[in-house]
Design a protein around this nucleic acid. Structure first.
Lengths: 110, 110
DNA sequence: TTCAATACATAGACATGCGAGGCATGAATG
DNA sequence: CATTCATGCCTCGCATGTCTATGTATTGAA
């Protein structure tokens, strides 16, 4: 397990919720969006992406629906009301967490 | 497992290396230092702290020595040369990672 | 005497990311 | 026509991590 892998662990679901808060999307497209918005840093793997989406749906933070495009089945996900609320909390938690780490590391972002 | 727990996973070792780069320290004191420098946010548990210290020592990033103070045994840890190098890399990796998350979340720190 | 704080350590429960594999379609390449 | 690449979804098993609970022990205060 690389360091980068361990770092992503707590942020993956938040990133998925964030991307889906912009507009409903599906697995493959989500990976592309995350790749772009992270400036190429986060290349989500299928073995982590799909289980994460399923977890979020199981917890009712996401809802899914199938659509067909050019002969390809796509499973779209969108935020539920609870998902939107959770995203708000997770964004705040991320900011507090990163502030904590920066504090210990003596990194001043002002 | 709380979200905060998952977030700390990738940063814990970096925080330990950072604290020990300031001066050698021992388990209990490290938890206090991290608690202070994170503004009370990170209360390291023994079940994650000690295994992490042992991992870092196993990987030769830390070295340990025992000392006695007021009848209490303390196991001090200090950075090795490799540990110092690793810390530098991890600090850079943390900054790249957090920039990536902030990018996806649309958080602008300028 | 009893309790809290200090101090180290580990076993087991539980959770998560990833590599590897499976299955399928459409477009481009040779 | 065959092959390869990009698109698209899914799951199993492995490695690894944190936390709770527990064990051991000393010091000092209530």
């Amino acid at each position: 397990m690389t360091l980068d892998t361990r770092l992503i662990t707590g942020a993956l679901e938040t990133l998925l919720l964030e991307v889906l808060s912009i507009s409903p999307s599906y697995g493959y497209e989500i990976t592309q969006t995350v790749l772009e918005r992270s400036a190429g840093r986060f290349d989500l793997k299928e073995g982590s992406l799909y289980p994460a989406l399923h977890r979020l749906e199981r917890d009712a933070l996401l809802a899914s629906f199938w659509e067909e495009h050019d002969g390809r089945r796509r499973k779209y996900y969108k935020l539920t009301t609870a998902g939107s609320k959770s995203l708000k909390e997770r964004r705040a938690e991320w900011q507090a967490f990163s502030a904590g780490v920066n504090g210990v590391l003596g990194i001043d972002l002002r």
